[in-house]
Simulated assay, not measured.
Amino acid sequence: MSVRGETMNLGLNDFHGWQSAKQESGFTLIEILVTMFILAIGLLGLAGLTTEGMKNNQGAYLRTQASILAYDMVDRIRANKDQVAGYQGFSTVGASTTPPSCVSSTSGCTAADRVTADLVEWARQVQGVGSGIAMLPGGQGRIVFDGASSIYTITIEWQEVGRKGDAGEVVAGDNSYTVRFTL
């Protein structure tokens, strides 16, 4: 064969090399299965991370709700300082959720009645009564006053699936929020 006056000699070995290169150019079934296996392991890891992230987001949401409820009661107590003794020792467990009549009255509530109204409204929010949606699942709230230090402690607790720490232990106190304040 001649190309521009040059002669090319193509031997049988040159065609054989071309054919063997063509045969080695594709993937084998085993290589595809190994790739699929590695991909499946990666996707399972990603699904686990997504699930753990959703649990942590739910926990953060519940903690935020507890914070809102605790500071709501702090503001109610500070707004009614003259009747502060009425807020002491309150618990939402078994508390009445029926608002006093002064709430719907056009004349409003007296300072003493406002304590009852505040506690009922707070208990309703913590327990999710009346709204159909509980801000906290199994929510409970307590107000405690320490006379020696004049410190009020508001604690909100709720039910939540236990979160595990780095060593696999269940993190304690992850379903409780506490605020301490003085007047």
Results as ranks from 00 to 15, higher is better:
128 G>N: 13
153 T>Q: 10
157 E>P: 07
123 A>W: 02
104 S>Y: 09
167 A>P: 01
161 V>Q: 15
94 G>Y: 03
96 S>H: 00
162 G>R: 03
150 S>E: 15
90 F>V: 09
91 S>P: 09
167 A>T: 11
90 F>S: 12
119 L>G: 01
101 S>E: 13
104 S>P: 09
170 V>E: 06
97 T>V: 02
135 M>T: 12
102 C>W: 05
158 W>Y: 09
138 G>I: 04
99 P>A: 11
164 K>C: 04
163 R>H: 06
94 G>F: 00
151 I>E: 15
148 A>E: 08
161 V>I: 14
155 T>A: 11
108 G>Q: 03
163 R>Q: 07
136 L>R: 10
99 P>D: 12
96 S>Y: 04
103 V>N: 03
170 V>W: 00
118 D>P: 01
82 D>K: 06
164 K>T: 08
132 G>S: 08
97 T>E: 00
130 G>Q: 02
93 V>E: 14
134 A>F: 07
125 Q>C: 08
75 D>A: 10
103 V>R: 05
159 Q>V: 14
155 T>W: 10
100 P>G: 05
103 V>L: 05
117 A>M: 05
95 A>E: 05
112 A>K: 02
103 V>E: 03
169 E>V: 02
128 G>I: 13
129 V>D: 04
101 S>T: 15
172 A>W: 01
120 V>A: 02
146 D>L: 12
115 V>L: 04
74 V>A: 01
173 G>L: 04
118 D>R: 02
107 S>C: 03
169 E>M: 00
97 T>Q: 04
99 P>M: 10
111 A>Y: 00
167 A>M: 05
129 V>Y: 03
116 T>G: 12
81 K>R: 10
134 A>W: 07
97 T>F: 00
174 D>C: 03
114 R>Q: 14
140 Q>H: 00
118 D>Q: 06
101 S>G: 13
143 I>Q: 08
124 R>H: 01
121 E>T: 14
108 G>C: 05
167 A>L: 08
154 I>G: 08
151 I>M: 12
92 T>H: 11
118 D>S: 07
87 Y>K: 10
114 R>S: 13
113 D>S: 05
80 N>C: 02
134 A>E: 11
141 G>S: 15
143 I>Y: 08
146 D>M: 10
111 A>P: 00
117 A>W: 01
165 G>A: 09
108 G>P: 04
81 K>C: 06
110 T>V: 01
125 Q>G: 10
128 G>R: 12
122 W>S: 08
